[in-house]
Design a protein around this nucleic acid. Sequence first.
DNA 1: CTACTTTTTCCTGCTT
DNA 2: CAAGCAGGAAAAAGTA
Length: 374
Amino acid sequence: MSSQCLSSILTSANLAMYQTDPLEVLPPQLPSINSLQISSLAYSSSMSGQWYRQVSPHCWAAEHVLEWISDHVESTKVDASTLSLALCSMDGPALCQMSREQLVGVFGPQLGLQLHQSLQEHKTKYELHSLSGPELSETCQLLDHFLDNLNYPLLSTIRIGQAEGAMSKRDLDCREDYELTSLSMGPLEDLSDNQSDSELSSSSNSGMFDFSSLSSQESGESDPEFSYPLISKNHIKTENGESRLKRPRGRPPKVSREHSCSIYENHKKKQHAPRGTHLWEFIRDILMHPERNQGLMKWEDRREGVFKFLKSEAVAQMWGQKKKNSSMTYEKLSRAMRYYYKREILERVDGRRLVYKFGKNSNGWKTEEMRTGM
DNA sequence: CTACTTTTTCCTGCTT
DNA sequence: CAAGCAGGAAAAAGTA
């Protein structure tokens, strides 16, 4: 029962984040991953939800590393069956110490190189100096909001990503297995019981992988405690014989957070989205404040209300932040935009990618001269 | 509580 | 080929 399961484990690790809103949770105690129970994995991932994309790799916990690897496994279509979870059990600080050669040693030439490159990108991306003034101010604004919602001091280290490399559709595909939640209700309390914050929040024992043993390490035999019999209904077989769960359509239900850590329970009662937070208004406001949102979007034809996304994924991420939805993508945002055609809030612009045009049922984007003069 | 609206998520197929 | 675009379908969550 070997290492079959990196991908399925990763998959299940991602499960919970599909169902929860990470911005609302994030209790102070990240359960240590070394127990490697699926429940803890699912639990801690529920607090992340692509969280790793928004934080320097140095701040990643083991589950973020797993998530990151998972995304690359998906995108490179590498056969994950040769990887054992043990090889992936390290936290961000440990990961950051790995050389290119070590990564290649562990993950093979293809995946290893890609991981190395990605790691470098993530590292540089979160260096503060890479942000220009306006970006920084916008970032701070979002961050304020973000932290306000979290009320979570640890996250003061977060750098909001520019998200060029934001998630692809495939990135999200792993959050497949609904059924697992019920299978994975392990005793979370046991995991965190006697652990102090410092132990939990980083490195120490979760970065325990011994790199010296790499060379000989080969698939086949992974520690039994690393294998999870993942059974679930509704799987479909793929060509490769792997089974994959076909997800139901529609928006996934949010999971109630009754079990979440009480200290960090949100005191704010579910706030209603205030008016003026419709997507098209959000887009309009970005366009109306270019100084704060440099490079995200631009007017193609100011008079006609034609505009273009320059950093589509970054805008989607910001929209996601606003809606407290860390898995927002341009693909989903654009679907919502397309619904505006029918309502004539937007007009179609054919043949030009990432270009939209305000329609007659939109307002607030015209300048004074345009309204009066013309 | 019901109906309705506005997304959000997923998907298949098509286009650039 | 990847990234976008089109829309259908279905469900969540807010609003009336």
